[in-house]
Amino acid sequence: MMNVERLQRFNWRPVAIGFLLVLLLLMPFNWFMGQYTTLLVFIGLHTMVTVGLCLLLGYTGQVSLGQAAFYGLGAYFSAVLSKTYGVNPWLAMIIGAIATGTFAYVIAYPIFRLKGNYLAMATLGLGIIMYVLFRQMAQYTGGPDGMGGIPQLAIGSFVFDTPFKRYYLVWFFCLSILLLSQNIVNSRTGRALRAIHGSEAASASLGINVAQFKMKIFVLAAVYASLAGSLFVHHLSFVNPQPFGFLGSVMIVVMAVVGGLASIWGAIFGAAMVRILSDELLLRFGELDIVIYGLILMLVMIFTPEGLFVRLKSYYRRWQTGRLGEVEL
């Protein structure tokens, strides 16, 4: 009896997170998964964007089909400021995050007067407008052909000049964001967000400033995406509008859904699944990729609306308690 209780009370969470950390630490080495370092960098970047959407959509219940726009804003702020105007890349990144956050703040109040499908349409429109701007403002952005020669990030004389080094930089940012988000979710703020998801009327009746919380989380998600965009352009030293269009936004939604909308750590899983799919498999399907994303979205929503990652976790739990049951007998 004692033993069973101890087993049940044993908290696997730190073990799982420790395992993940060791894995992340070792993956870019050549004897492990070195040939996939670039893919792993992209997974980290997309995880950052996805966590923002999880907070917004999964926790607060507010859909956005335009998250790639903020990703793109960060990317272009960093690219243009550091390349064209010679601003220090770190400073450019901060300016980009502030500007993108301010932009999100300004559009938050009008956009969140809308709900449900209307909100989806509005954010979709936002994404399309930004994409067109990235393409059309060619004298700044290089237009559809993009711009290259973007300087690399450095700390003193240490330059992040190889994918190996940038991998650690990106995952440092990514894990910090995951940790901050995890803390936010398990707090007064996180409760308020979930309450808003449950019932806006009841939330307001308990003193929650619904509009303000929606705005704050929208801004936070935009800043996450902007930081990811900045890291993205310094990783590639190149930027074009392609990742920041409608398909880009759809990918982010699929990542969030696959990882589990209301699961912070699931974002890594979702981003990894979709990136592996898009970088390693979907290349063969050409333009059909959007169809496949649509299909995944439909299948996940129909069969595991809580997300694939969350479902696997609950299977594991059930298997574990099943085992415990046997022990008890």
Binding site: R191, H197, G198, L206
Partner: peptide, 19 residues
């Protein structure tokens, strides 16, 4: 009623403490 779904009873009441 308008309870908050996917939240425990305790969490529901904790939201009440928001202000």
């Amino acid at each position: 009623i308008l309870l908050f779904p996917h939240m425990t009873c305790l969490e529901n009441v904790m939201v009440g403490q928001h202000t």
